[in-house]
Simulated assay, not measured.
Amino acid sequence: MRLVTFVADDHPDRQHLGALLDDDSAVLDLTAAAPEDDALRTMQSLIDSGADGLDRARTQCALRPERALVPRDAVRLLAPLPRPLRIRDCGLFVAHAAAALRELARRQAAEAADPDAEFERLMASGRFDLNPLFYERVLYYTCDHLSVSGPEDEIEVPAGAKELDYELEFAAVLGRTARDVDPSAAREHIFGYTVFNDWSARDLQIALMRTGVGPGEGKDFDGSNALGPCIVTSDELPDPYDLTMTARVNGEEWSRGRTDGMQHSFEDAVVHFSRGRSIHAGEVMASGTVPSGTAFDLGKRLRDGDVVELEVDGIGVLRNRVRIPGGHGGGPNGSGRGRS
């Protein structure tokens, strides 16, 4: 199933759980289809209901009650899981971290009288070498689960920053609460997959990371963790490690990668994070960024009004417009202010 959370145009204050049907042209309102079923009220309640709840949702999709079918263009999709219990952004694509460190060194070197020589000096210093722990362990940082956005939401650069950037990722949503998960059973704990955009205020992030305490407000601001457009249940995506990932800005492709380049798997993360502690149904584990999956990696910058689309095979397109007050639309990095 391709599960969504949405509001109807005539009831914008009432969230419903739904399933995309007919090549995503229609939405089955699962909440309206079975109003007496507590499992079909929200995405979290469906996740908590386990296999039985999913079976009842599939039954409703097969029945397709006419009263609960609405055209896709008559609703507004929200983040499929509007309030995750936790979000961890993991370093599953290790190659991206190495490329990001090189670009960080290049930016710092740009301020020197001889940028090329300074870049070589910085790289030779070892300060921008990738720590071997990235290969040995599943590293992560905890995102603000209260700062979630969804499809078509506008993303505004936070106060004190001028550079907003996308990060091309996807994520696994956990379906079981557990502890000390055996590797052979790890995949059973994944409810489904969604597209994830780890919006980042690069200038603020870089300044704060020089303190050694992490990205701080450079990653955590209103709407900084975008999810969508749906959660595809794991049975519909039998091989999540054979997918193409694409980022477009104003319709122009900027980034492309594949999930087969992950150093660690989501199953590795499930096992690692459950060792001696609990993982919970409704948690989101993001992959980290695919190589070349940011404007920062490419030496480009988003402009005010740019439209960013992240697409992952089998899941869909997560589309947002950026707002950078004082910025300018179009320019050499894009093709205008984007589409509405």
Rank of each mutant, 00 (worst) to 15 (best):
116 D>S: 11
117 A>C: 02
117 A>R: 14
118 E>V: 00
118 E>Q: 14
119 F>W: 04
120 E>W: 06
120 E>T: 10
120 E>C: 03
122 L>V: 04
122 L>C: 02
122 L>Q: 13
122 L>A: 08
122 L>D: 01
122 L>T: 00
123 M>V: 11
123 M>K: 07
123 M>C: 13
124 A>T: 09
124 A>I: 08
125 S>D: 09
125 S>P: 12
125 S>C: 09
126 G>S: 03
128 F>R: 00
128 F>T: 05
128 F>W: 13
129 D>C: 02
129 D>E: 13
129 D>M: 00
129 D>P: 06
130 L>H: 03
130 L>I: 10
131 N>A: 15
131 N>V: 11
132 P>D: 10
132 P>S: 07
132 P>T: 09
133 L>S: 13
133 L>T: 12
133 L>D: 12
133 L>P: 00
134 F>L: 09
135 Y>A: 13
135 Y>Q: 10
136 E>R: 15
137 R>P: 07
137 R>V: 08
138 V>N: 08
139 L>G: 00
140 Y>R: 04
141 Y>M: 10
141 Y>T: 03
141 Y>Q: 08
141 Y>F: 15
142 T>R: 12
142 T>H: 00
142 T>F: 05
142 T>Y: 05
143 C>L: 08
143 C>Y: 00
143 C>N: 14
144 D>A: 15
144 D>P: 03
145 H>P: 15
146 L>E: 15
147 S>P: 02
147 S>L: 13
148 V>M: 12
148 V>C: 05
149 S>I: 11
149 S>K: 02
150 G>V: 02
151 P>D: 08
151 P>E: 10
151 P>V: 04
152 E>Y: 12
152 E>H: 14
153 D>V: 08
153 D>N: 14
153 D>T: 11
153 D>S: 12
153 D>M: 01
154 E>C: 05
154 E>F: 02
155 I>M: 06
155 I>C: 05
155 I>V: 15
155 I>P: 11
156 E>F: 03
156 E>W: 09
157 V>N: 03
157 V>I: 15
157 V>G: 00
157 V>M: 11
158 P>G: 08
160 G>D: 01
160 G>Q: 09
161 A>M: 05
162 K>R: 11
162 K>Q: 15
163 E>D: 10
163 E>K: 12
163 E>N: 12
163 E>F: 09
163 E>M: 10
164 L>V: 10
165 D>V: 05
165 D>C: 12
165 D>T: 11
166 Y>C: 02
166 Y>H: 15
168 L>N: 06
168 L>R: 00
168 L>E: 01
168 L>Y: 02
169 E>I: 06
169 E>M: 10
172 A>R: 09
174 L>G: 07
174 L>W: 04
175 G>N: 04
175 G>S: 02
177 T>W: 02
177 T>C: 10
177 T>Y: 01
177 T>V: 05
178 A>W: 07
179 R>P: 01
179 R>W: 08
179 R>G: 02
180 D>H: 07
181 V>K: 01
181 V>Q: 08
182 D>C: 10
182 D>H: 11
182 D>V: 00
184 S>Y: 10
184 S>K: 14
185 A>F: 12
185 A>C: 07
185 A>M: 14
186 A>H: 06
186 A>R: 00
187 R>F: 13
189 H>P: 00
189 H>Q: 13
189 H>G: 02
189 H>Y: 13
189 H>M: 12
